[in-house]
Write a protein that binds this DNA or RNA. Structure first.
Lengths: 247, 247
DNA sequence: CAAGAACCGTACCGTACGTTACGGTTCGGC
DNA sequence: GCCGAACCGTAACGTACGGTACGGTTCTTG
């Protein structure tokens, strides 16, 4: 392994290398045992020698692939145009809806699965890569929005991190662990939208500015719009599926 | 493999078999690659032949061990004595505190890790076992308490499952995924208690019965006790640690 | 067009681990 | 005290896979 890792140092990947890494990820989604060097080479129509020259060893290949996919997965960021209550609420809903869509997708599930498996198994930490591009990335992207909301008098919290983590919990609840553990849990687009709306609503119920003073000089229809979902935090039915995986 | 699986059918495990399964789990916590048949045999001071006779194959051994540990992990249940606001709040706090303590422990982390890794890798589903003894078990244990709370006029929600999942999210937030992904994230006993209290408080803010009518014939000091934590859902600082794993 | 680099395909090597086989030992029942 | 069952320890087998070597082919460059 003399000068193997082009990747670690220079972040540039050729198109061909990208194809290879996509092949790796395809294999990953077909179950982790499937990703052998031979299989990757065959699937990507390249030689094992090339794999080793490019990525050093199997672990480097996996790491590069995870990094590659993780960097592609990050949901779009939200520009902070002028903030009123509705635009804030819509931004938040959109943000989390996007996120729900991403993490419930097969790519994200595979990504997290392999990262978890690997973090457990010693060697180079895919866990931190996924964490950095997932949980922490959305934190850094959402927190400015929350703080803008606070500055605009729409939100009220002391610690941004705490508020964010609560929001995170309201949105994700048990779905990530369930998906990772193999629970068949298909989420329709409608459910995603509804979940994002419910979570946002609950977030406003917890952290929305509601001092009488600042409340009354806001437009009449503040976030919890009775027309959209339940005014209180309990939508009627939703998705109470107790449906463990293929028994 | 003629009549191997004593375990699948008769749920009884001899003490010796329990020792073996504990040995497996010890190995599991030392990184998943460590759990080879030879290592298990050596650690448990038994022969490989016995392992195969008892558990069929490596997968059966893993499955038995996960089932064994999962059944030992379940936090204690809570009896429904007479319910007033304070006892309910304390029960909930205690329940979730227990749960936080469990899932942040190394055993639970190892358990979830191996289950995730395995669920990803085809074969017999450890995921459902962990799910059944973890997420779903606490659901079944907590929901009666919530419904008693509602019957006593202390809580207000339509769908128990939805309320429970929200509560789950408020408590767990991002800690489970972070722990699984290898984030060093030590949680002190104090933080656990505080988190459970904060989550409970937020849950009451979202689902506590607060119609004017039933509110006024309740004792003066309803759950959000200003003396305990912040009356609103935002504790001052808490644990905003952005501390990714060993980079 | 020629020389060299990059790469493909395949064959090969070493090893680690799952699985099986077998001789020796302990132990409960008659 | 004898017999068989259960079990221990270890040795052996087969295989799958990570990693390497090498000849042939395509692409780049001057």
């Amino acid at each position: 392994m003399q000068e193997a890792n082009d990747i670690e140092t220079s972040e540039t990947l050729t198109a061909r290398q990208g194809e290879v890494l996509d092949a790796v990820f395809d294999l990953l989604m077909k179950g982790g045992d499937a990703v052998t060097m031979t299989a990757v080479a065959r699937r990507a129509s390249c030689s094992k020698e090339t794999l080793y020259k490019w990525f050093g060893d199997r672990d480097g290949l996996l790491t590069a692939s995870v990094r590659w996919q993780a960097s592609k997965v990050r949901a779009g960021s939200y520009d902070r145009h002028h903030l009123d209550a509705n635009s804030l609420r819509e931004s938040l809903q959109g943000f989390w809806g996007n996120w729900l869509r991403v993490i419930s997708g097969p790519k994200s599930i595979a990504l997290n699965r392999v990262a978890v498996s690997h973090a457990w198994s010693g060697k180079s930490n895919l866990g931190s890569i996924v964490l950095e591009n997932g949980r922490f990335a959305i934190g850094e992207r959402l927190k400015p929005l929350l703080e803008d909301g606070r500055a605009a008098g729409l939100l009220d919290f002391d610690d941004t991190e705490t508020a964010f983590r609560t929001f995170f919990g309201l949105v994700s609840r048990d779905i990530q662990i369930r998906l990772l553990l193999g629970d068949r849990l298909e989420i329709t687009e409608a459910e995603i939208a509804q979940d994002a709306a419910r979570a946002t609503q609950q977030f406003f119920a917890l952290y929305g500015a509601r001092d009488r003073a600042s409340f009354e000089d806001r437009p009449a229809s503040f976030p919890p719009q009775p027309s959209e979902t339940h005014p209180r935090g309990a939508p009627e039915d939703e998705d109470g599926k107790h449906k463990p995986p293929s028994s």
